[in-house]
Structure formats: structure tokens, C-alpha cells
């Protein structure tokens, strides 16, 4: 029996895209690179100590004292270990991919909630994106966007966007039927129903999705570093390939600190808003 030439088909498709969509890829590349560089510039603008003070104040505003203490001590440690600029690079990468995921993911989630057809197509696609090994789509990403931070962001978005889409959909579906009926019964347009009733009520669930998206994009930083994205992931990668166990631990610890701070920040942000309805 003859093998289906699936590999050739994919290769052909990728080649075709490379030949015909270069302009599009260049635009995307420029935009993403611009955003990442903008964030890095912003984060590197203040002196690390000033940055830490601002972070501490923000932490105190959104959360409790423990979060403030952890953020300040954690970032002081990062500075002390000498990973400051790498950490800021990584932070920019993570925030950029989270931002792109949210900007694309929430509308997609809403679309799925409104259209059964969209949901039927997008759901298996999400499964595909979450389970397909990252290295497999890293290669075409490099083909399209060349080495550097951009394919890293793209790979992170592919891996990290599903929770935002899924939980936006779930959040809207969880709004009780009587509430959407009430919105309809008083003559809301679909837009009014969405923005005045469904989204505000879906917000806690939706934000849990955003939180997951941020965590997942952070978990991609090491992989992103393999295709040339600068940052703390690159430090981990270098330490591991050179068998420097101590250095590897240091860089790994920085990732953990960053992860915990980002997680608690995003969780706190929406937990202070207690109004919710099911």
C-alpha cells in the first residue's frame, strides 16, 4: 500500500507560503519586533532600583503585603545575580505574546460562543496547537520570520492562546440562561447583550484564561531561545548545553520568580473584583 505523501503536501504548502506571503510575514514581523523592542525599552528605561520600587507599589495596590515582599525581594535577587537585562528581554517577550494572545483570543472566544460552526472548527484546532510538539512549528516559523525574537513570539502565541479562547468561550457559556434571556427581553442589541451582560459576567473566567496564557508563554521562553530569542531562556539553554549546573539553576530560578510574580499579579487583578454571577 502506498503511503499518503502528507509530508510532501505540507512542504509544498510551506514553500508556497514562503514564496507568496513574504510581504505579509514582513509586516507581521515588523509589528511584533516593534512591540517587543518597545516593551524592552520601557522596562530598561528606569534604573533597576526604581523599577523595583514601582513594581513594589503596583504589587501593594493590586495585592497584599506578601506579594509586595516577594516581588521586591525576588527582583532584587535577579538584579544581584546579574540577569537583569535578560529578565527584561524575557518579560517583554512574554508580555508581547500574552498581549497578542488576548487581542486575538478574546474575539475568537466570543465568536465561538456565538457561532456553533466556528466553535466546531476552532476547538480541534486548539487541541492541535496545544499538543503538536513546539519544535515542529518552530521550523516553519523560522522559515517565515527568520531567526530572532519574532518566531519566538509566534511560537509562544500558538502554544499559549488556547486557554484564552477556551475560557472566554466557557465564561460566556456559563452566564446563566435567564440573565441572557433578561437582556434579550428588555430589547438589547447583540452588542449591548455582549458588553453589558455577557462579558462582565464572564470576566473572572476569562481572566483565568489570560493568566494561563501568560504562564504558558513564559514556559516557552527556553524553546524560543533556541531560535535566537534573547533573554533568560537563552541563559538556561546555554548553561544546559555547557553542563554548567550552578548557572543553570540560577537562570532557572529567575524564570520561576518571574512566573510567580506574573501569576500572582494577574490573579490578584481580577480577584479584587468580587462581583460575579452564575
Amino acid at each position: 500500500m502506498q503511503k499518503i505523501p502528507l509530508d510532501e503536501w505540507v512542504q509544498t504548502l510551506v514553500n508556497w507560503m514562503e514564496d507568496h506571503l513574504t510581504v505579509l510575514f514582513n509586516i507581521i514581523s515588523a509589528v511584533i519586533e516593534g512591540i517587543v523592542k518597545g516593551f524592552t525599552w520601557l522596562f530598561m528605561l528606569p534604573h533597576p532600583f526604581l523599577f523595583i520600587i514601582i513594581l513594589g507599589i503596583l504589587a501593594f495596590l493590586v495585592g497584599r503585603l506578601s506579594l509586595t515582599l516577594f516581588s521586591v525581594i525576588g527582583f532584587l535577587l535577579i538584579y544581584n545575580l546579574g540577569y537583569w537585562s535578560q529578565t527584561m528581554d524575557t518579560l517583554s517577550l512574554v508580555i508581547t505574546s500574552a498581549l497578542i494572545s488576548v487581542v486575538l483570543g478574546i474575539p475568537l472566544g466570543i465568536w465561538c460562543a456565538y457561532s456553533k460552526g466556528a466553535s466546531r472548527i476552532i476547538t480541534p484546532l486548539l487541541d492541535f496547537m496545544q499538543t503538536m510538539p513546539a519544535f515542529v512549528y518552530l521550523l516553519p516559523a523560522v522559515t517565515f520570520f527568520s531567526l530572532g525574537v519574532v518566531p519566538g513570539v509566534i511560537a509562544s502565541v500558538i502554544f499559549a492562546i488556547p486557554p484564552t479562547i477556551r475560557l472566554t468561550l466557557l465564561g460566556i457559556q456559563q452566564v446563566s440562561g435567564e440573565l441572557t434571556e433578561a437582556a434579550d427581553a428588555f430589547g438589547s442589541t447583540s452588542g449591548q447583550k455582549l458588553f453589558k451582560v455577557q462579558l462582565p459576567l464572564a470576566l473572572p473566567t476569562l481572566m483565568a484564561g489570560v493568566n494561563q496564557t501568560i504562564m504558558l508563554s513564559l514556559s516557552m521562553v527556553v524553546i524560543a531561545s533556541m531560535i535566537g530569542a534573547q533573554g533568560i531562556g537563552a541563559e538556561v539553554y546555554r548553561a544546559v548545553t555547557q553542563l554548567q549546573i550552578g548557572k543553570g539553576f540560577e537562570a532557572g530560578l529567575v524564570v520561576v520568580i518571574l512566573a510567580i510574580v506574573l501569576d500572582r499579579f494577574t490573579q490578584r487583578l481580577f480577584k479584587s473584583d468580587k462581583k460575579r454571577g452564575r
Partner: peptide, 13 residues
């Protein structure tokens, strides 16, 4: 036409 619902259906937010 307005409607009153069994479980009130007030918007909690």
C-alpha cells in the same frame, strides 16, 4: 412588553 423572571435574573455586576 416587559418580563419578570422566576429566579429574578438580576444582573449581579
Amino acid at each position: 412588553i416587559s418580563m419578570v423572571f422566576q429566579k429574578f435574573a438580576l444582573f449581579p455586576h
